[in-house]
Amino acid sequence: MRRFVTFSLFVAIVLALWEAVGAAGAWPEILLPRPSRVLSYLGGAISDGSLLEATLVTGKRLFAGYALGFAFGLPLGLLTAHATLARDTIGLVALGLQTLPSVCWVPLALLWFGQTETAMLFVVIMGTIWSILLAAESGVRNLPPIYTRAARTMGSRRLHLVMHVVIPAAFPAVVAGLKQGWAFAWRSLMAAEIFVTILTGFGLGHLLHYGRELHAMDQVLGVIAVIVAMGLLTEQLVFAPLEHWLKRRWGLAN
């Protein structure tokens, strides 16, 4: 709570100074508008619905891509952890591709899928899948063998063993992978939206892009604020509770 107060105070002071110095004409308004201008843009964009729509479009792409990345990444990670052949093939590919900034997939996605939602989805999936795959793999690989032995004596095997022992035991590692995958997906989607216009929906990245084209710096700064807020919100509403729960149940300090 104290941290929150300190931080709010800090932000308020910075904004007030910025407003005051900006109003005094210290720099051209077109390059760096005052906070009040940004606020009035945000007010307008919220009331005409364009901001909400862009947020929804971006959110939908992110969520769909992330969910697909998870749906493919987790089973593939389990596979590479268990089968040597999969590890020496898919596993090594994942290791290599994870180092690739996922925005590098944009040119390829455009050639393959054109300016479509599929291209966006592809970029987000490529951003998520490898982190989740590798995290799941290492989680399973580091599983204490005593867990599976104990489970087997109680009659657990095959699918039951995977669902009730292997996956839950690898869960802390998978959460770490989910968090990293989220960060990659979020960044790559923003980059893709700025680069590429998709006519079926304008996301936050497009708003940024058009803000630049129209020299509307109040729009650019406003959208940046929204993007930051979305990132913080996801962290606070999704990952923080998840990690808190892990800590309470497993007794892990992260």
Binding site: R149, A150, T153, V165, P168
Partner: peptide, 26 residues
């Protein structure tokens, strides 16, 4: 392995993702 022969291990080998009764229920 079979449920007619149950094992107790040196370091308990309890599952941390389940609570105490959850482990017994497994």
């Amino acid at each position: 392995p079979g449920r007619d022969r149950m094992v107790m291990f040196q370091d308990a080998a309890l599952f941390p993702w389940r609570d105490a009764i959850g482990n017994i229920l497994f």
